[in-house]
Computed example of a mutant assay.
Amino acid sequence: MPSFTDCFARNQGSLTDEQQHLLHKKRVAVIGCGGLGGYVIEELVRIGVGQLHLFDPDVFSPSNCNRQLNALMPTLGQNKAEVAASRAASIHSFSKVTAFPVDFRIACEEESLQVDVAVDCLDNLQARRDLAALCNGRSMPLVHGAVSGWYGQVGVQLPGTDLIERLYPQRMTENSAPSVLSFTVAVIASLQAAETVKLLLGLPSSLHNNWMHIDLKDTDFLLNER
């Protein structure tokens, strides 16, 4: 079997040995394991995060195949969190990945949500608000991402702040299912993974308590002016 050093050798130069081993000690919850979640999980496992807790009650359907990494003909009808955990286990053995095929709100009193960072890969407004409130109640940072067509946004809510409330006020209502494109999902998820790693390593970011709008049609990355 390859060693820990072998698996993460190409991280060296961008990460120090100390940072690599620190990531191995950290726990992340990914809430939603479809489009954004599939890529976030993939990238966090490949960079060496030690524990991932995956939450999603949904199963893969044919309409997921245009953008969701783990939506394949053989996985249709299977739970998204369980499929993602199985794929993660096939990458290497240094990340412990546990699937929770339930709504995160069902498990909110359990140790499964006692993590260092939560990643919002949801597609439901009320669920996002509920997750943001849960994270604030536990003094836990939240990395937010959302996608619609060619456009997306990424932000980081630090404990005790109100980013999600500002982005999704109560007066906002749910719209019909938006168009979602594969490359937009991959870009937003990669930014979420990067912000998660910064939080785990204690690195600064212009997205802390802030957000960025991404327009891939006109190739425009616009950081919100505070």
Results as ranks from 00 to 15, higher is better:
G145N: 09
Q170E: 15
S139P: 08
G160Y: 05
K217E: 11
C121H: 03
L191W: 01
D130V: 04
E111V: 09
E109I: 02
R128F: 13
I188D: 03
F104L: 03
E109Q: 14
N175F: 14
W211E: 03
E111Q: 13
A177R: 03
E174G: 08
L199W: 07
A186H: 15
D120T: 01
D162S: 00
D103L: 04
S112H: 05
F221V: 06
N175R: 13
N209R: 06
V156T: 06
G202L: 00
T161G: 06
T184I: 06
C135Y: 11
R166N: 12
L131K: 00
E195K: 04
D116G: 07
S205P: 11
C135N: 03
A132Q: 05
F221D: 06
E110S: 15
L134R: 05
A146N: 11
F221Q: 11
H213P: 07
S176H: 09
F183Q: 06
A146R: 04
E109G: 14
V180T: 15
W211F: 15
I164Q: 01
L222A: 05
S206R: 14
V154K: 02
E174Y: 10
E195W: 12
P204I: 07
H208G: 04
R138P: 00
V154R: 07
P204L: 01
D123F: 09
S205D: 01
C108V: 14
A193H: 02
E195H: 10
D103E: 04
V102Q: 08
G155M: 07
L167M: 09
E165M: 00
L203C: 05
R166S: 08
D162W: 09
L191N: 04
L131M: 02
K198R: 11
P204S: 13
S139F: 06
Q153N: 15
N175Q: 14
L167G: 01
G155R: 02
R138W: 15
D215F: 15
F104V: 11
N210V: 09
G202R: 05
D162M: 03
L158M: 12
A118Y: 05
D130T: 00
R138F: 14
E109K: 10
L201G: 00
F100I: 10
S112C: 14
H144C: 09
M172K: 10
A127E: 02
F221C: 04
V115W: 08
L142W: 10
D103K: 04
C135D: 07
T161S: 12
N124I: 00
C135T: 03
L125R: 01
S206A: 10
I188L: 13
H144D: 01
L134W: 09
D130C: 01
A127D: 13
T161L: 05
E109V: 03
S205T: 07
Q192T: 09
V119M: 05
E165S: 15
D120R: 00
D130F: 05
S182E: 08
E174I: 06
E195N: 03
